[in-house]
Design a protein around this nucleic acid. Structure first.
Length: 841
DNA sequence: AGCACGCCGACT
DNA sequence: GTCGGCGTGCTC
């Protein structure tokens, strides 16, 4: 427990308040009064326990002041959990910035940014107040003003030392114990505390060491002599000495040996116990980091090619003038080596580095590389980690144990204290944007805000930069370095269009495969080269259709057709997870003529068995990688050449480097190209270029076949010619002409309700209200999104386009938020929710 | 987000 | 007659 007795008389006379952030999606902070005993102690970023409604919450102090709240009577802070801030000042500023920019509450920020292991929960414990325990023995409950339940709980606490909230609830047979706790707290009868040490359990290891007195040659010899008649104990001592010879440093002996070494060597527990009892061995436990480094000591270095060295020098040079540099480096130009080089340089200067990846699970190869170079200094962080793991990394960063953190987007929330560089790899990736829930932030953009808080630098890297980033680089806002050569002798793959319209006319298609595709695949198989096939759609067929009446089975909760999955033999909704058995007869007309329409990865896999029966095919998509090790196994098998053909969704486009792949096949590119979204061209260019990069590394020249009905489409031509610049030039002109980002900022407001009429009406009213102030040109819609109902919620979108310059963004957003709230508050729209998404992906 | 209060259906 | 459904209103 903390020592509360260090306050001065001067402070005790004054009344202080704390604005506290609570993990609830309500705007603003909550003001609590400090008990005099806490005067002078809480500071911004420290955790406090406060009563909130009928319950108790962990909050983060945002500021301390002396202004009493006007509307409410302030309640008292119950406990202070920290003696130094859990959330540092830069983090708090980042939270405030992000809440403001992304139009969410600070509470939502806290939920997203703080690992729940640092929040109290039902695991928080209650203890009897030591002073009260005495009074309880001396006075009657009535004299102490206790009711029946309070007495019962206090008696239980008296016997049990401490209880969790849930245990207390059980004892009292009540679901709601907060009223009682509150009253007991008020009577100073109990203390609530959070055992962080318990909730976040470090992994410990039982270890043994030889007592210091035996660490000289003579005393050790005497000891062994003494143990002559106790062979097991002697063996144990010998075991110890052979593992840790006497001449080692005292430090090494203090670190001892894991107890398991002895038990595994067949030395019984009882022998060890005797040694402990006699003071020959000492037992202690050591905390093992959960992410023990497998490659300790053997830290690799990188060698840069002259081109890479030049690019790195250019980047460092640009960093003297710009805060952000964009590295446009094609696949195979060795961006990772450059990152490692630059990170090492920053580490030498004593600063921390954050390395962001769009999806860490898919890029295990990069993490391995980094671990080899940075060893124990490297922390890995993403939202799939368990809470204990996350708390461990959080603390490691706060304590400076991890000077390099590689992580997915949530890693921007870690408690850096002296950040020097943020690397954002594959900066164009949509995965940097969080969709659900709030805060709907983009970690790439936030990394620049984060960096500015530390005067740190940001390096954006991509083979296919986002239009936004490239535009800003061209404008001179970012530095720009282009590395457009592949490393060593590797050359760019040949990219060829296969005209499926023509092949269909000539009737040379076999299922989803063009004859050209099958021929090239056969050629590759003959040469024992591997193949990657890319189809950005999972399942067997995206929908079923009755041949007689055209009925398509739909999801009952969403406005989408159900995808047929061959392996699980079911129809599945990819939005809500709804499943049903595929019908043998049409629900509407009873016809048994039901056909599959379209194709997904499963169908490609299935057809391969027919057309290339000798090939070993593996599929990699959400369905085959659900298990923790799923994709690792698939990747390993492919790397070990146990698999000939890898069929997959965008998963196959990321971070996989295999040197035996000559051929990459891309299916159904037209669907991506014609997707109704202003970014569809950009996305297609990025995705196809990325998957093309998997073809032909090192000595072989790769071949990429793209099946399309529009081989002349300009985007496909730019892809084929590896011509990012022309693609960019054409696309940026379009963006400017139609007023899309980067020339404008977009905010998407989604009206959401179970009731279609209300959803539509609310969206309409919202758009009207916004138009009245912002003007018709800035407000688009409302319109139904492509999928107008998800999980039984109807959706309507209003898009707001704001100029990049000459507009007060903060003021405008405040106005938008107010308007949305006004709509939500109208009693007729009680079931409508309006969701704001700033810079939607 | 929780959690309680409050007003309408099927049950010991 | 109650138990319990989830609508809605509030939380410093």
């Amino acid at each position: 427990m903390l020592d509360f007795n260090q306050t001065t008389d001067f402070q005790e006379k004054e009344t202080f308040f704390a604005d506290v952030i609570l993990p609830v999606p309500i705007p603003g902070t909550f003001t609590y009064r400090l008990p005099f005993a806490l005067n002078g102690m809480p500071a911004a970023g420290m955790r406090v326990v406060v009563p909130f409604g009928k319950r108790v919450q962990t909050g983060i102090v945002l500021r301390i002041h002396q202004r009493p709240p006007e509307k409410h009577q302030a309640k008292y802070i119950l406990e202070l959990l920290d003696d130094k801030p859990t959330v540092n000042t830069q983090q708090l500023r980042l939270w405030e910035w992000a809440a403001d920019y992304y139009m969410c509450s600070l509470g939502e920020m806290m939920i997203a940014a703080l690992p729940s292991g640092l929040k109290i929960s039902s695991l928080s414990r209650i203890q009897i107040h030591p002073d009260f325990a005495l009074r309880l023995e001396e006075e009657t409950p009535e004299a102490l003003g206790l009711n029946d339940k309070e007495t019962r709980l206090l008696q239980a606490l008296h016997q049990n030392d401490n209880l969790t909230f849930s245990e207390a609830a059980e004892i009292l047979d009540l679901q709601n114990i907060y009223t009682i706790l509150k009253s007991l707290i008020a009577k100073q009868a109990i203390i609530i505390f959070e055992e962080i040490q318990e909730k976040y359990k470090p992994k410990t290891l039982k270890k043994l060491r030889l007592a210091a007195q035996f660490l000289t040659a003579e005393t050790l010899a005497d000891l062994l002599q003494d143990l002559d008649k106790r062979p097991k104990q002697q063996e144990a001592v010998l075991k110890y000495i052979s593992a840790l010879p006497l001449h080692l440093s005292p430090e090494a002996h203090r670190n001892g040996l894991p107890k398991s070494i002895f038990t595994e060597a067949g030395i019984s527990d009882s022998a060890l116990k005797t040694l402990l009892k006699n003071g020959i061995f000492e037992e202690f436990s050591a905390i093992v980091p959960r992410f023990a480094d497998q490659d300790t000591g053997v830290l690799a270095t990188v060698t840069l090619s002259p081109t890479q060295a030049k690019a790195c020098a250019d980047i460092e040079q640009l960093f003297t003038q710009k805060d952000t540099v964009l590295l446009h480096g094609i696949t195979g130009s060795g961006k990772t080596e450059m990152y490692i080089h630059l990170i090492s340089r920053v580490l030498e200067s004593g600063s921390q580095v954050l390395f962001l990846l769009p999806e860490i699970a898919l890029t295990a190869q990069i993490v391995e590389r980094l671990r080899k170079v940075f060893g124990k200094q490297l922390g890995v962080y993403h939202s799939k980690f368990s809470d204990n793991e996350r708390v461990e990394i959080w603390k490691g960063v706060a304590e400076g144990r991890f000077s390099v953190v590689v992580g997915a987007r949530s890693a921007v929330w870690l408690p850096f204290s002296h950040l020097g560089l943020v690397v954002v790899d594959e900066e164009h990736e949509g995965a940097y944007k969080q969709f659900e829930p709030a805060p709907r932030y983009n970690a790439r953009d936030l990394s620049m805000v984060l960096a500015s808080l530390f005067r740190a630098k940001v390096l954006l890297g991509s083979a296919t930069p986002s239009l936004e980033s490239y535009y800003l680089a061209k404008q001179g806002r970012y530095g720009l370095v282009e590395a457009l050569q592949r490393y060593g002798s590797a050359s760019l793959p040949e990219i060829r269009m296969v005209d499926t319209r023509l092949e269909k006319k000539q009737k040379t298609m076999k299922g989803t495969f063009s004859s050209v595709m099958l021929q090239e695949m056969q050629r590759s198989l003959d040469k024992h080269e591997q193949i990657i096939l890319f189809q950005n759609r999972r399942g067997y067929a995206p929908h079923l259709s009755c041949d007689d009446c055209g009925t398509i089975p739909q999801c009952t909760n969403c406005s989408v057709s159900l995808t047929y999955h061959l392996y699980s033999k079911e129809l599945r909704c990819h939005y809500c997870g709804y499943r049903e058995d595929p019908p043998t007869n049409c629900r509407v007309c009873g016809s048994d003529q039901i056909k599959h329409v379209g194709f997904g990865t499963e169908k490609i896999e299935d057809e391969l068995n027919l057309y290339l029966p000798t090939a070993v095919v593996q599929r990699m998509d959400l369905d085959t990688t659900r298990t923790r090790t799923g994709h690792q196994d698939i990747i390993r098998d492919f790397a070990d050449k146990k698999t000939d053909v890898l069929v997959g969704t965008q998963m196959v486009s990321k971070g996989l480097d295999f040197d035996n792949v000559r051929l990459v096949g891309v299916f159904d590119v037209d669907r991506m190209l014609y997707f109704p979204d202003f970014r569809s061209h950009e996305r297609t260019f990025q995705l196809v270029t990325q998957v093309s990069g998997r073809a032909g590394r090192r000595e072989t020249v790769g071949l990429v076949l793209i099946q399309t009905g529009n081989p002349q489409h300009p985007i496909l031509q730019h892809i084929a010619e590896h011509d990012y610049h022309t693609f960019y030039q054409n696309e940026i002109v379009e963006r400017e002409r139609y007023g899309y980002p980067p020339f404008t900022r977009m905010i998407r407001l989604t009206s959401k309700s179970e009731d279609l009429q209300l959803c539509v009406a609310a969206a309409h009213d919202l758009a009207e209200k916004l138009r009245r102030t912002l003007g018709a040109a800035r407000v688009l819609g409302p319109e139904a999104p492509v999928i107008e109902k998800i999980r039984n919620q109807y959706l309507r979108e209003v898009w707001i386009k704001l100029e990049r310059e000459g507009i007060n963004l903060r003021q405008t957003k405040t106005f938008i938020a107010q308007t949305a709230t006004e709509i939500e508050k109208q009693s007729k729209y009680k079931s409508v929710r309006i969701i704001a998404d700033v810079d939607p992906a």
